[in-house]
């Protein structure tokens, strides 16, 4: 196998894991834009979403074994519902200083993580992919079918989100509400409901990411911490609050991770990825897509 195909293979792996980060980053960015809230519980929400879907698939509930797509939909919907419920907790938090937001949402993360430990046990489990386990060979490049599924469904979800936000009435109302709460409510847009919807979409996307990645990663109650932090880094990297930024940030983070793991040093992967974030922010403090704002004096 030649270097080019190894490189492309690594790149595809990076895009796959990058799609996962992008879906998580979207949750951070959308909620930040609509409520001004930096939600550090998002990693835990991702973990909960993964469980909410996967338990139906693996027979953890009453021995039920529904099919993977059905489990996927159930998980996304249930986690969306969780997002709606959490809006009530986030509403007062969003009015506080960043420090307090950080700690409050981290507290919520603790609660979710450890409830998951109590309910499902601290031990994790591997999930069988609904697709064949053997990598398929496309022109000499080996790819896991599940990885392809992850990339394709993520791409669909991102396009769908963009279409929803730019064409539907609700989507436009959400964007208006995010832009200016006061004007939006004066125009009769129910701001709190729009925030709830944003949280529902963010949480749903996180669940989707988790359920899609479950057969590749290992499912356990601690899985949210690392991915949550990387997703946040990705959102910041792209420019917090920007939807294209979140997608770009996620993909860049994933690809950098994969390339540094494949070609530089596997043990330094995480460090290199974070270091790239630091460097990018030093060069462009508002992120890849974020606009450079002149600070008003």
């Amino acid at each position: 196998m030649n270097t080019t195909s190894i490189f492309i293979q690594t790149l595809i792996g990076g895009i796959g894991i990058g799609s996962l980060y992008a879906l998580i980053a979207l949750g951070y960015s959308m909620v930040y834009r609509s409520m001004g809230l930096v939600n550090f519980a998002h990693g835990s929400i991702y973990m909960v979403g993964t469980y909410l879907g996967i338990i139906w698939y693996t027979g953890l509930v009453l021995g039920l074994h529904v099919s993977y797509p059905v489990a996927f939909i159930i998980g996304v919907l249930l986690n969306g519902l969780l997002g709606v419920l959490l809006e009530r907790i986030f509403r007062p938090l969003a009015k506080l200083d960043l420090m307090f937001m950080l700690l409050g949402t981290i507290g919520l993360g603790f609660v979710l993580d450890n409830l998951a430990v109590i309910i499902f046990g601290a031990e994790g489990f591997a999930v069988r992919s609904p697709l064949p386990n053997a990598p398929i060979n496309i022109a000499g490049i080996l790819v896991l079918p599940q990885m392809l599924l992850l990339i394709c469904v993520s791409a669909l979800l991102m396009v769908g989100l963009q279409v929803f936000l730019s064409t539907t009435k609700t989507g436009k109302a959400m964007r208006a509400s995010a832009m200016d709460h006061d004007i939006a409510s004066a125009m009769g847009i129910p701001v709190n409901r729009m925030n709830a919807l944003t949280l529902a979409i963010g949480s749903g996307l996180a669940a989707a990411a988790g359920i899609l990645a479950a057969p590749i990663v290992y499912v356990n109650p601690a899985m949210g911490a690392a991915v949550g932090l990387k997703g946040f880094a990705a959102a910041i990297l792209g420019g917090l609050g920007s939807i294209p930024g979140a997608i770009a940030g996620g993909l860049v983070f994933g690809v950098v991770e994969a390339i540094s793991a494949g070609f530089i040093s596997s043990s330094y992967t995480k460090g290199i990825a974070f270091f790239v974030v630091v460097i990018v922010l030093m060069l462009k403090p508002s992120g890849i897509v974020g606009e450079t704002v002149i600070e008003k004096v």
Binding site: G107, L108, V111, N114
Partner: peptide, 9 residues
């Protein structure tokens, strides 16, 4: 840790 998290909140 659940109690801990709730106390933080």
């Amino acid at each position: 840790l659940v109690v801990y998290g709730i106390s933080i909140m």
